[in-house]
């Protein structure tokens, strides 16, 4: 045993490259305890041993925590997967709604713009973007708009818009 410990002492000091001694160290609990105590002696001599962890095999705590982490990591894998799928389906659905809303918006804006008589969006040779707000009929001071509209045309436009919207909503409901 003394011979083994002498070799262990040299191994600790990086003065020995001996696989057999390393193997013995890895396999023998007694050698491992000696290894710890030899290191502790050095730590105490160098004043690198605060009054914490001094007589503790701290590796047991570390390995227990690693084990615990591995277990807690294993459990939520499916949970994370499930959550991820939910997020994906949510983004997919959200995307669909966004597209539907954009299409509806474009249709409404186009129908509103189309319903205005030709030439009303130019004034004194200057091209001005002329739209009537969705909420009502605002009349900016600098812009003159004719509010004369054909009631039949407006009704038809509305019908078309509603049909488009209904069709889109139906498509969304049908999709999984």
């Amino acid at each position: 045993m003394n011979e083994h410990n002498e070799q262990l002492s040299a191994l600790i000091d990086n003065e020995l490259d001996n696989t057999q001694i390393m193997d013995a160290l890895v396999q023998s609990v007694e050698q491992q305890d000696t290894f710890s105590r030899y290191h502790l002696i050095g730590d105490i001599m160098r004043e690198e041993a605060p009054n914490i962890l001094l007589d503790i095999d701290f590796s047991a705590f570390v390995l227990a925590q690693i084990e615990k982490d591995n277990q807690t990591l294993e459990v939520p894998v499916d949970f994370i997967k499930m959550k991820k799928n939910n997020i994906l389906s949510f983004t997919k659905r959200f995307g669909q709604y966004a597209i539907a809303a954009s299409v509806a918006g474009v249709v409404v804006l186009t129908s509103v713009m189309m319903s205005q008589p030709n030439g009303s969006n130019t004034h004194d040779g200057l091209e001005v973007l002329s739209t009537i707000p969705l909420g009502g009929a605002a009349s900016p001071v600098s812009l003159r708009t004719d509010t004369q509209e054909s009631p039949v045309l407006t009704k038809e436009q509305k019908k078309r818009t509603e049909a488009l919207l209904k069709d889109h909503q139906l498509q969304i409901q049908i999709q999984p």
Binding site: Q32, H39, L40, E48, A49, I52, L54, D57, S59, V62
Partner: peptide, 13 residues
Amino acid sequence: TLLVRKYQNRIAN
């Protein structure tokens, strides 16, 4: 575990 045992005091320090 041997690596931890070797360095635990120095790390605490």
